[in-house]
């Protein structure tokens, strides 16, 4: 998890400070693990959002519960997306870098649109959001397993 990783970084700040150059430029292995973490976090957030919107359409939530859940997902998705886009990819990863960052930012945008649709109580847009999120999941899941297999 990105948040947990941030926590570890805080806890180990003293140890990690010397290597905290900007932008951080991980080696091949470090890059893969960053990418894998970001993609699996994104799978989790997109799946959460899709489930939430689906259940909202079935009117299963009280008050503004769905909106709060979606806001948290959006935030976490943004962090996952940033964790990849703010590092310098190693040369071997550059061809796939653009695809990856685009996919992650598309997913973040889709969660934001879902949140907007739910907050506006817009049923057609919510249905469209479910479709979009499903399509993104279909692209993210295979990517997550291939990254996991490679690392």
């Amino acid at each position: 998890m990105v948040k947990r990783l941030a926590g570890t970084l805080l806890l180990l700040a003293a140890l990690l400070l010397p290597s905290a150059c900007r932008p951080s430029s991980p080696d091949e292995k470090g890059w893969r693990s960053t990418a894998e973490q970001a993609v699996s976090d994104m799978v989790s957030e997109v799946a959460t959002s899709r489930l939430t919107v689906q259940e909202q359409l079935r009117d299963r939530f009280v008050g503004r519960y769905a909106i709060v859940v979606l806001t948290y997902s959006e935030e976490a998705a943004g962090k996952a997306s940033d964790s990849v886009s703010t590092v310098q990819p190693p040369p071997s990863a550059r061809p796939s870098y653009d695809d990856l960052t685009t996919l992650l930012s598309d997913a973040t945008d889709a969660i934001a649109s879902a949140r907007i649709a739910v907050a506006a109580d817009d049923e057609p847009k919510s249905r469209k959001a479910v479709v979009d999120l499903t399509r993104l999941l279909a692209r993210l899941r295979p990517l997550a397993s291939s990254l996991r297999a490679a690392s």
Binding site: S40, S44, E55, F61, Y72, A76
Partner: peptide, 15 residues
């Protein structure tokens, strides 16, 4: 494949 990172997710199964 949802990993729990917020309390809202803990309530989803009940909803």
């Amino acid at each position: 494949d949802i990993t729990v990172a917020s309390l809202g997710q803990v309530g989803l199964p009940v909803a």
